[in-house]
Design a protein around this nucleic acid. Structure first.
Lengths: 222, 222
DNA sequence: TAGATTGTTAATCGATTAACAATC
DNA sequence: TAGATTGTTAATCGATTAACAATC
């Protein structure tokens, strides 16, 4: 039931994808899956799948593959999916609203307790049964309630002060949507969703292809 | 002006972050930056910064560091930030709305030409001057207009068919927000924003810490 | 049994870190 | 000049791929 050594970083990053795919397979009533098939589905090699899963011990069976429900349950345990997490969202704009309206989070144990905003028009509104409070009250709120994760959905230039405030109030994790690299103390975890970086990376790879193509043409001409 | 060899994957993934940080420094009127300082800011080592930048040739100066505007302009060129990209968004729900309302994309040359949705209530609406069209018309629309990037903001089970349709109409890139691993032809680029994976990864790292702490306690007891 | 597929080792590949001479 | 900081090489580390004996 317990994996001894530290999970390699690369594997840890892939764990949510494993869980998601195994859950899909389960709802499709697929009982067994081979490293071959799972790899194809996830865009990984069969070898990689076997290496990854073997970080946790022998979950497969030679000549058969992996038993989907067993493996899914186990990876779920490693991920701690049955845990409950209390969250607040700072910034009730587009991103903040999208997060609170995202239906699957609640099912997965993530509970948004409050939204905070600076704009008088938003303060006092109720979104998904959750009140929008003035951001001035965030500090007091954190002191009074036990919050695990703060979602930062503010403009970039307000993000760091939220982190500092959260750190002082012993919040353990930041989910950051602001387009900025934040500095967090070693006691906190952070995950970034940098939308503009993601889109710019996509545009870069398109651009790269164009450049390569033009070089190809020149090559032919010469 | 031209980098000869292929940019290593790890470097390519960091390029948007470089660009973002250099842009910030520029707006702060910082003219020079050392690998030391930039590394600290971005959470990388100085060594890594120098290795990365040297993929593109000698942009620094011994004893001085890097000239911010020059480096920013150059990395901008590599990323192709001055290019224009025509986009459509499929799915006018929370995510689709958040994307179209995200103000910085338009500034960066990304233009949303149309939204598509299946719900009769949304069809016909105008969001940010962009019409919501019925998803039935997507195929015809793609045939009639030159679209570079399709944003997938549909439920997971509708995403693959959009990809297939887009592939058939020679769309070059997918920006996927649906929580599913899509299979795309080699002619297309894809970038995924898996919100639930990101949050689950964060929760995993919290869980890992808890487990480590409990083990620590047991250790003391014994 | 025969066929399939894992678990695991070894080889390869790529990315990061360390170190320091070159030089601004 | 003296101090700072790059560019670059070599060493280390980690991740992926390949291969195949073990075994269900």
């Amino acid at each position: 039931m317990d994996h001894k050594e530290r999970v390699p970083d690369a594997v840890a990053r892939r764990l949510p994808g494993y869980y998601r795919n195994l859950r899909e397979l389960e709802t499709e009533d697929v009982l067994r899956v081979s490293s071959q098939v799972l790899g194809k589905r996830m865009g990984l090699t069969a070898s990689q799948i076997r290496q990854d899963i073997n970080c946790f011990g022998g979950f497969g069976q030679q000549g058969y593959g992996y038993h989907v429900p067993t493996l899914k349950r186990y990876i779920g345990q490693i991920l701690g999916v049955d845990g409950k997490h209390q969250m607040v969202i700072v910034g009730a704009g587009n991103i903040g609203s999208a997060v609170i309206n995202y239906p699957s989070f609640r099912k997965e144990g993530f509970r948004v307790q409050a939204l905070f905003d600076i704009s008088p028009e938003r303060i006092g509104q109720i979104v998904q049964e959750v009140p929008v409070l003035p951001v001035d009250e965030l500090e007091a709120y954190l002191r009074a309630h036990s919050i695990d994760i703060i979602v930062i959905a503010t403009p970039a230039d307000k993000a760091q002060e939220i982190v500092d405030l959260a750190a002082a109030e012993n919040v353990r994790a930041i989910w950051n949507f602001a387009p900025v690299d934040l500095s967090v103390p070693a006691t906190m975890e952070i995950a970034n969703v940098h939308l503009s970086d993601s889109l710019m990376g996509l545009s870069f790879r398109l651009h790269e292809r164009e450049v390569a193509q033009e070089k190809g043409k020149q090559w032919i001409k010469e």
